[in-house]
Design a protein around this nucleic acid. Sequence first.
RNA 1: GGAGAAAUGGCAGAGUGGUCGAAUGCGGCAGUCUUGAAAACUGUUGAGGGUCACACCUCCGGGGGUUCGAAUCCCUCUUUCUCCGCCA
Length: 423
Amino acid sequence: MLQVPFIRENKEDVIKRLAVRNIDATQMIEDVINLDEDRKQLQTQLDNTLAESNAISKEIGNLYKSGNTAEANVLKEKTTQLKEVTKEFTEKLNNTIESLNQLLYKIPNVPHPTVPNGSTEDDNEEIFKEGDIPVLHSEALPHWELAKKYDIIDFELGNKITGAGFPVYKGKGARLQRALIAYFLDKNTAAGYTEYQLPLLVNEASGFGTGQLPDKEGQMYHVTQDNLYLIPTAEVPGTNIFRDVLLNETDLPIGITGYTPCFRREAGSYGAHVRGLNRLHQFDKVEILRVEHPNRSYQALDEMVNHIKIILQELKLPYRILRLCGGDIGFTSALTFDFEVFSTAQNRWLEISSVSNFETFQANRLKLRFKNSEGKNELAHTLNGSSLALPRVLAGILENYQTKDGIEIPEVLIPYTGFNIIN
RNA sequence: GGAGAAAUGGCAGAGUGGUCGAAUGCGGCAGUCUUGAAAACUGUUGAGGGUCACACCUCCGGGGGUUCGAAUCCCUCUUUCUCCGCCA
């Protein structure tokens, strides 16, 4: 959520930059500033009343001590009146704060100046492309056919046990998944990220901290009996490590990585383009996450992008990097780069990573701060990215590495799989 | 699941109705000493709102109550610890 002082001081710029998301925020920004003005006024009125109350209370104490009960009782009457006034102001103030917050929750992050205009994913800007798209033999298959042919993923079985979108990996398929997870985690820890194992269920406060709640709860599975949510991404438990945390400047930067399954309801998305591994209700992902000093967060974003590039180069998969346009960028993000791997048999690009800088948008909600060199508490910047989402990487490997003799295994993974072909 | 104890600043830990935003220690910051560092010593150091700056207000796990006045008393919720039970 945006900070009110920032909105007030950069009113025109905020409106202009939010327009890149194709929203006209003029009225909302105006309302925020007005509500905050009201808030300040009410706060001052309340504070003055309380100050008077406090002063009288002190006096009553002194009067009792000196035995002047009669005068004390007179003053007591007065405080009763003040209590009424206090109650009234408190109520008004709380209502104003509530309205202000409700409004602030609705305003997305301000896009970085480099975010291109645009309304849909077609307007995203391709900024990098690498890797040769292989020419497949004539009997090449999409990954779901390959999965069946080599008996490594069973979609029907998952359907029986749970429902659509919960595939069962078996044999070499299961081993390849485990290999990818281990490989990603090794790459990340080698780059300085600390490995974490995080809870897969989170409470309301955590859902709120990263912005899934209060508005986007439909994305998550809700365990109503205990009021917990299954995580849609490791970003949720990972970022909430830092909720209500005050760091020293020397603690920065912080980098963590973790593997978790992810659970997404994906209500209403069915059809041919969600076939196979393209979109699932449960999938595995390795995430990287950073807490950075504001003046080097964009450098950190570049480092993360480069890190993921190296992984894809090593896997020798054809991929491209997109700079998301204003219409496609996430609610909480200021700048996002998507990585897409080419699904040769489907002849389409599949998103396998999304790397974002949230600047202070998350930190403001989380109250994640550090003590800066002037001794002031300052909001940190948070960033995260997938490194990587497993199913589509797997789809990419199956399709791009298929030969007439079977599916070859990328060289870097062989130490992890213990085999070099699925046949 | 049952019984008991506890929750205080970045951390540890005093404080049981007004003089408490809160002793003390650690940590942080500044200084003295030193060629430099360490050690030692001295000073300083909670957060949020508000103000040009003060004043002032709020905050001692969350919520509610008693009282002129609550970290302190009462109710309630949550969490943690100990013991018992159950259990991968």
